[in-house]
């Protein structure tokens, strides 16, 4: 399970430019990550350290608290 999520996160990171270009095309808003490490790297590390459920939960908390 954790390997599948790690793969999904890697694909998301690979498609980062696609997402950014689409959003800049349509809305013109540029993005930068305010966290270090970025949320995708953070979730992957959390999953490795604390397991899938806890890692995913912590990742969701971080993503949905980033305004």
């Amino acid at each position: 399970m954790s390997r599948l999520i790690t793969l999904i996160i890697t694909v998301y990171q690979g498609l980062f430019n696609v997402k950014t270009t689409l959003l800049v095309s349509v809305f013109g808003v540029s993005y930068h990550c305010r966290h270090q490490p970025s949320c995708s790297v953070y979730v992957r590390r959390q999953i490795e350290q604390n397991g899938t459920i806890v890692g995913l939960w912590r990742g969701c908390v971080r993503v949905f608290s980033c305004w």
Partner: peptide
Amino acid sequence: NPLAGCVPQIIQLGIL
């Protein structure tokens, strides 16, 4: 700009 976080991006993907 405070409006550059993850949540505004998710909202914009929805609007897209």
